[in-house]
Design a protein around this nucleic acid. Sequence first.
DNA 1: TGAATAGTGTCTCTTAGACACTATTTA
DNA 2: TAAATAGTGTCTAAGAGACACTATTCA
Lengths: 229, 229
Amino acid sequence: MSEDSTFAVTVDLVVLTVRDEELSALLVRRGVPPHEGCWALPGGFVHLDEDLVDAAIRELTEETGVADPAGHLEQLGSYGTPGRDPRGRVVTVAYLALLPDLPTPVAGSDAAQAQWRSVSELSDSELAFDHDQILADGVERARAKLEYTPLAAAFCPPEFTIAQLRAVYETVWNTRLDPRNFHRKVTGTPGFLAPVGRATEGDRGRPAQLFHRGPASLLYPPMLRPPTG
Amino acid sequence: MSEDSTFAVTVDLVVLTVRDEELSALLVRRGVPPHEGCWALPGGFVHLDEDLVDAAIRELTEETGVADPAGHLEQLGSYGTPGRDPRGRVVTVAYLALLPDLPTPVAGSDAAQAQWRSVSELSDSELAFDHDQILADGVERARAKLEYTPLAAAFCPPEFTIAQLRAVYETVWNTRLDPRNFHRKVTGTPGFLAPVGRATEGDRGRPAQLFHRGPASLLYPPMLRPPTG
DNA sequence: TGAATAGTGTCTCTTAGACACTATTTA
DNA sequence: TAAATAGTGTCTAAGAGACACTATTCA
């Protein structure tokens, strides 16, 4: 082996969900130094015989108590600037998870506390290490991916209505979309949605058809965000 | 430090250019085991006090002899499956570089040989380690990014014509684009191109206006690839 | 019945794509 | 002059956005 191998490798997770009209991230309060008492992204050291994505799944399960429901997990990027961790040279591989709003979300084992926090209400430099930057990158990735993939459905339960899907777009993009044009658009994009054949019951108003995720992995044509400004 | 820190961290580079109507990648022939004699992506170990992107820039300079001309460099992703390197647990952070076709490209120091290879003519499993996968991911990233960023210009010299830019799109996407519609499209997208004010000389046909990269970092509306199939 | 939400129809404006045409150079 | 390449104009079809209207439920 090379003499350069004095690195530690961790995974950190940007876990996003939509709840109460807010895009929210799962944060944990650190119980040990460094940054003891600070909020941070969930994560931990990669085991020596463990694949990176498996480490991310393990941490996700440990922190949320769920074994990957109908969500989405992808690699976000790596952060390894010298000095980002006072304990030594630590390279972290960040993962982005998109989950439906969970009934009983946070059931951590390691973390002293874990909590959903609204992304828009987090101030800069509130998180430990460089986790502000990682979170911001994850949020931007999620926003961009809603445009050209069907990943908005990853924020929804397995069966969802078009209004629920629209609420995801509106929350993540912090914008308003015309319900009627949105309906035409998503039902007209091949592979985006697969009809369940049933409708909601018991709500106010006309019942809505239920859908699950369609087979498409890319949207064509994409759902472009309204230009900002 | 944690007892998990028996990792080595490397950077590997997917260096792409457009030359002779082909999307080409810079490959080096390995001079030492493992995979001695095989073609591989340029790369090497990250120094202990060195930022990841600086390691990538250093390797790029060492292998190409150029200190980042007018190109583009971004992180592609990390690959760390146990067993991907027989020497031990090695996590590599891959970077994607897009460069103009260089006059005197390959002037490696480490590598026994270095060479531009057409991406389409590379067979599967021709590269060492998991570099086939990394290269494929880099090519797909480049193809996708031409749609919604002005990065096609990174494949061009500092001053270029619209026909050169179109040739980049056609080569990377392996498709044909209507020259007249392409011209209208790129000149009509704000921030994509900045006119130099001069024209080419000495070619056949009417001289073409020269442009350099505009200030935009995102194209709106995007340049969508024609749907395949 | 009215309020509320789901879903369709229609119009307009913008853009993509096809392609005729003009402009400016070299041979 | 012809050949070649650059660049514009125009038509058509498709999609986005605005918004009137119909449909189906609960209170």
